[in-house]
């Protein structure tokens, strides 16, 4: 792992309304094969991606939210949520499908600076 690069996926979009969330998740799963140091960051509306209880039958769209729970199997364990974004949306940590680390905007910005590669969704 010594030559592993630090990859950050920055997720800022709500699921289903646009394709960004699903595309990001697919790229994350593919990238996992390359044994890099991967972090997922959820900012702004991106925090909605992790909301528990998604039921997509009514909109006839695939519910891809269970796949976030498989990330652990892919050795992706660094999930960061922007605290301000979570609070602005009336959400709490208990609303998320998976355990996350809450970061303030300032901390998130710092973590972004430490990356070798940043992928934006």
């Amino acid at each position: 792992m010594s030559d592993a690069k630090k990859f950050m996926f920055v997720n800022r979009k709500a699921p289903y309304g646009t394709i960004y969330a699903l595309e990001s998740l697919e790229v994350v799963l593919i990238t996992a094969a390359f044994d890099q140091d991967v972090s997922l960051a959820f900012l702004d509306d991106g925090v909605y991606q992790l909301k528990k209880g998604q039921q997509t039958k009514g909109i006839e769209t695939k519910n891809f939210s269970p796949a976030y729970r498989a990330l652990e199997d892919y050795d992706i364990e660094k999930l960061y949520v922007e605290k301000e974004a979570m609070e602005a949306r009336g959400l709490t940590e208990e609303d998320f499908l998976v355990p996350v680390t809450l970061l303030s905007r300032a901390e998130m910005g710092k973590l972004m600076d430490e990356q070798d590669v940043v992928l934006s969704f």
Partner: peptide, 11 residues
Amino acid sequence: MPDLEARGLGD
């Protein structure tokens, strides 16, 4: 409602 439920916020 189908859009709200899809997003896990029906309640």
